[in-house]
Design a protein around this nucleic acid. Structure first.
Length: 552
RNA sequence: GGCCCGUUGGAGAAAUGGUUAACUCAUUGCCCUCUCAAGGCAACAUUCACGGGUUCGAACCCCGUACGGGCUACCA
């Protein structure tokens, strides 16, 4: 028997299938021409990261806009870093954003399994065949030996790593290899690189274009001593047999592209296209760096969902980072569905964008302003149920009332933009609820200190008998001005400024007194609507309560 | 250190050889206004990291330098 064959059998005695069997099991996908097969491949090391959301959003859109397939594969081959249960969490979080993979590691699919640790039999078949044809070999070097070798290489100022003459296990005699395997010595499997570091190869990246890189000459590890594959090898096998057409991943993978290309070439497999996405950065002191899942709590998208940011704000923001012409498109199509926009690789930015929460807020305000009162009420309730039960209870006690609050100056050409996130709502409208109003009234009220208590009481008394809330907004305001005039306030701010001595104040000062009495604060949404929604009885009750407080 | 990628205002960026360097966010000012939130109108890069070169002409092409980022594992 061929010595390589013997080694292969010694390592994988129970592997009987061949590459051909795998080719038949995972045939090319039957998709329309131009359809892209993309994937998102998270490792189960925690929550959904902003950068991962960005990458999956892009990958998903590319697949969907070409009638292709987007799948999600769990890269759990690093058993040291794995955090149990976080894989499902990532899928759930993606779903929050409407990103639903066609195939994934929970629901499966025809090209599964989609969990790398469950794909070991597949990797074993490939590795066995690679050993048989000399493309891979076992390596028994210890960490200590490798460290020592690295030091020697550094002293010699040659490229560090396992290559060429330094790849000692490359040339082990078959008998020796067999002996050590039988002996139970630990080993890894390495790829036998046909490359030379003095060769240059052309790289084509869909986003960055073409450029030159050094050919790979490293005999990289493809199977670790625990029997699981390394990333490089899993990428090769999985993306080949899952029939990925476009590998979309973070730019941190760019330096290993020569390895991946070589792997595909040696196997004689068709190379996928590569698109290396920019990384999302954050400011750290006065330098910027990649947003880190370990150091930055805000790297977790759940952090923002908890804070009440709407998912569409994020999606929209990420789209502006993804394609530089997206903002222009949105300006032209303010109400269009975000996904009518077609992403393209050549409009992707090259350098990592600084994550800009101010811009997320602005975009979120715009998006929330476009919702109907019913929509935003429902969404706010969903959010509050999860994160602010006290608020949720108020909404649920009287959904119509809450919806009425939310309808103030909503709809029409220029809707209010008070809210960037759902958590902004309650602090703005809480005074509408009598129990919260009453609490505010226990605190000192922000009266204009230039006005005497008598004037305040006089003003309130003049309005409390008849708040004339059945008039239209403009009629109501005219009446209010007339009332102000009768109480010694100027109905016109300009006139007041010309002759301050003649008045207690102007219409704004007059209205402020009533506003404070009704809300306990100086600022409210459009006051006319606030009064109408509260209703005459409640308005009078509040004013009377205030008068009593002032008198007391 | 080595190898790659990148560098236009506070942030995201457009414009890839030819007048005043789009636009969005932020900031500032003014206007509107009963408050707030909006809205309207302005201002904000004497200049495209820096230094050379090519050219009648450069943010755009070439060379060098600086700076930033990524990678350099039996991590992904």
């Amino acid at each position: 028997m061929d010595p390589k064959q013997k080694i292969a059998n010694a390592i994988f005695p129970s592997v009987t299938q061949s590459l051909d069997d795998l080719e038949h099991r995972y045939p090319p996908r039957n998709l329309p021409k131009g359809a892209m097969v993309t994937r998102f491949a998270p490792s189960p090391t925690g929550f959904l990261h902003m950068g991962s959301l960005f990458a999956s959003l892009c990958s998903w859109r590319y697949a969907k806009q070409t009638d292709g397939v987007f799948f999600c594969r769990l890269e759990d081959t690093d058993t040291k870093r794995e955090i149990a249960g976080t894989g499902d969490q990532v899928l759930r979080e993606l779903k929050n954003f409407g990103i639903i993979p066609d195939e994934n590691f929970i629901d499966g699919g025809a090209y599964g399994p989609y969990v790398q640790s469950e794909r070991k039999p597949i990797y074993d078949i490939v590795i066995k065949s690679m050993i048989e044809n000399g493309a891979a070999y076992p390596c028994f070097c210890t960490h200590e030996e490798l460290d020592e070798m690295r030091q020697r290489q550094e002293a010699l100022k040659v490229n560090p790593g396992y290559w060429g003459e330094y790849a000692t296990c490359r040339n082990l005699s078959p008998d020796m290899v067999l002996h050590r395997i039988e002996n139970g010595d630990p080993y890894v499997i390495r790829f036998r690189s046909p490359g030379q570091s003095h060769n240059k190869i052309m790289i084509t990246d869909l986003i960055r274009g073409s450029f030159e890189m050094t050919e790979n000459d490293q005999d990289i590890v493809i199977m670790k001593s625990d029997g699981l594959p390394t990333y490089h090898f899993a990428h090769l096998v999985d993306d080949h047999f899952m029939r990925t057409t476009h590998v979309t991943r973070g730019e941190e993978w760019m330096p290993s592209l020569p390895i991946h290309l070589q792997l595909f070439d040696v196997m004689g497999w068709k190379r996928p296209e590569y698109a290396h996405l920019p990384v999302i950065m954050k400011m750290d002191g006065d330098t910027r760096r990649k947003l880190s899942k370990r150091k930055d709590p805000e790297a977790a998208v759940s952090y923002f969902l908890e804070a009440g940011y709407p998912v569409e704000g994020f999606l929209e923001y990420l789209m502006t980072i993804a394609n530089t012409n997206f903002e222009g498109w949105r300006l032209q199509n303010p109400t269009a569905d975000i996904f009518e926009f077609r992403l393209s690789f050549d409009k992707m930015t090259l350098d990592g964008a600084l994550f800009d929460l101010e811009k997320v807020k602005s975009i979120s305000k715009d998006r929330l302003a476009l919702l109907s009162a019913e929509e935003i009420s429902g969404r706010a309730l969903t959010w509050a149920k999860a994160y602010q039960p006290e608020f949720a209870a108020l909404i649920e006690a009287d959904p119509k009332k809450f919806s009425a609050f939310m309808s103030i100056e909503r709809g029409g050409e220029k809707p209010r933009k008070d809210y960037a996130k759902f958590s902004d709502i309650f602090p703005i409208i809480d005074f509408m609820y009598p129990e919260y109003y009453d609490r505010y009234m226990c605190d000192p009220l922000p009266w204009n200190e230039t006005l005497s208590k008598e004037i305040l009481i006089g003003t309130l008394a003049s309005y409390v008998t008849d708040p004339f809330l059945d008039l239209s907004e403009s009629e109501w305001f005219e009446r209010l001005k007339a009332l102000a005039a009768s109480q010694g306030f100027s109905p016109s701010v300009k006139e007041y400024k010309k002759n301050k001595e003649a008045f207690h104040g102007h219409i704004g000062d007059f209205a402020e007194i009533i506003r404070i009495a009704v809300s306990g604060r100086k600022n409210t949404p459009n006051f006319y609507y606030v009064l109408r929604i509260l209703g005459v009885t409640e308005v009078r009750r509040r004013i009377q309560k205030t008068i009593a407080l002032l008198q007391g």
